[in-house]
Amino acid sequence: MSDRGGSRLDRMVHGFALRRWARAAESAAETDLSDLRDQRGRARALRSHIDKLLHVAEGRLALPAIGSTAIAKPHGTDWAWRPELWRGPLGVPGMSSVQSKAMLGREVTLFHDCAHSELTLRQLRNTREADLAPFGLRLDVFQFDGSYLSLAIDLPKDATEGLRKRHVIRMETIVEMEKPLELFARLNIKHGPNTEQIVREVPVSAEEVAVEFDLAYTKMNEKRVTGLWLDVIFEGPQMNQVILRDLTMTRFPRAEM
């Protein structure tokens, strides 16, 4: 049986280590540079273990379960995916005054042409009973002096495997916003030197929404597809807060006529 509180000696050692690092942090501005360099190395080594423990602990203790692959799938689905930002905690959970081409995680990139950025991005924890995704994404927009704002989401390599023009790709998302705005989704398909694009308006009258991209209407070369990405485009976003509680992609063959 495990000792839930730890031994008395463990608690004493832990308390000593906390006080030691607290003193080092408080005096860092005046510490001799050679000592500070040594402290920095030991702190980095310690942080790597702490970060790993926190990552695992968050995954085991929080609900909905981190890493959840629970996705609503249309009949016949042969591929389904939820981006990492909505699956698990990111090392850097947010940023402010976000510059164009800044990435949150490895798959989500923000694009805009503002001269002065008053944008913030932050990963947030979903706690509602109805949520399937462990995390969501909050976008805060204050003054906006640009002409476009979008999130680009890179789809994984396996999204291209076996991709055919008879496929339909479906995006489902849960959207919350302070005030109405126009929202568009654009699927980009890279094949050879060309890129096919399909644009759909995302209805925002309901919280849970979906759009479908029918590849039959493209000139996609099935043998040369090398990548896919999704653009989520915000029109008139100034002085607004938008939360994407979930975002999933599924693929299924179109019903034969």
Rank of each mutant, 00 (worst) to 15 (best):
Met249Leu: 15
Asp32His: 11
Asp32Ile: 07
Glu222Leu: 10
Ala43Glu: 09
Ile153Arg: 11
Ala28Ile: 13
Gly6Tyr: 04
Ile71Tyr: 07
Val141Phe: 00
Arg166Glu: 03
Arg37Gly: 10
Asn240Asp: 09
Phe16Ala: 12
Gln238Gly: 03
Phe184Arg: 12
Asn221His: 05
Leu63Arg: 11
Ala45Tyr: 10
Glu26Tyr: 15
Asp214Met: 04
Glu208Gly: 14
Val98Asp: 07
Leu54Ser: 10
Asp32Trp: 07
Phe142Gly: 07
Arg40Val: 11
Asp113Tyr: 06
Thr173Phe: 02
Ala17Ser: 05
Leu228Pro: 10
Ala62Phe: 09
Arg125Val: 10
Leu149Ala: 11
His191Phe: 05
Asp246Ser: 15
Trp86Gly: 07
Glu161Asn: 00
Thr226Glu: 08
Met249Val: 15
Ala115Leu: 13
Ala159Thr: 07
Gly236Ile: 03
Arg82Val: 11
Glu107Arg: 15
Tyr217Ser: 08
Ile66Asp: 15
Val108Glu: 02
Lys73Asn: 08
Gly136Ala: 06
Met239Val: 09
Val199Glu: 14
Val141Ile: 06
Ser147Gln: 06
Gly76Pro: 02
Ile153Thr: 04
Asp131His: 07
Leu230Thr: 12
Arg47Lys: 10
Pro93Asp: 07
Glu208Arg: 14
Trp81His: 11
Gly41Val: 02
Asp3Lys: 11
Leu63Glu: 08
Pro237Asp: 00
Leu104Lys: 02
Gly136Phe: 03
Ile50Gln: 09
Gln99Met: 10
Asn188Leu: 02
Lys190Pro: 00
Glu176Gln: 12
Asn188Ser: 05
Gly76Asp: 02
His167Gln: 07
Gly15Arg: 01
Ala70Asp: 15
Gly136Ile: 00
Ala17Asn: 02
Arg37Ala: 14
Thr195Gln: 11
Val199Gln: 09
Asp145Pro: 05
Leu132Gly: 05
Arg42Asn: 06
Lys157Met: 13
Glu178Cys: 09
Ser7Asn: 08
Leu46Asp: 14
Glu196Trp: 04
Gly136Leu: 06
Trp21Met: 08
Glu172Thr: 13
Leu183Glu: 08
Ala130Val: 05
Leu124Tyr: 03
His14Tyr: 01
Thr160Arg: 01
Thr173Pro: 02
Ala130Ser: 08
Thr226Trp: 01
Ile174Gly: 11
Thr250Glu: 12
Pro93Ser: 10
Phe252Gly: 12
Trp86Cys: 07
Pro237Ser: 00
Gln143His: 13
Gln197Ile: 05
Phe16Cys: 11
Thr226Arg: 11
Thr173Val: 01
Cys114Asn: 10
His112Ala: 07
Glu172Ala: 13
Gly105Gln: 01
Pro253His: 10
His112Thr: 03
Gln39Asn: 14
Ile189Trp: 04
Phe213Asn: 04
Gly88Trp: 06
Pro134Phe: 01
Leu63Lys: 12
Asp32Gln: 15
Phe16Gln: 09
Val242Glu: 01
Asp140Ser: 07
Arg122Val: 06
Met171Val: 07
Leu85Ala: 04
Leu33Glu: 13
Lys223Trp: 13
Arg42Thr: 07
Arg8Gln: 03
Gly236Leu: 08
Ser100Asp: 05
Glu84Lys: 12
Arg170His: 15
Ala152Leu: 14
Glu58Pro: 00
Gly59Thr: 00
Arg37Met: 10
Ala80Ser: 14
Glu161Gly: 01
Arg125Thr: 10
Ala65Cys: 09
His191Met: 06
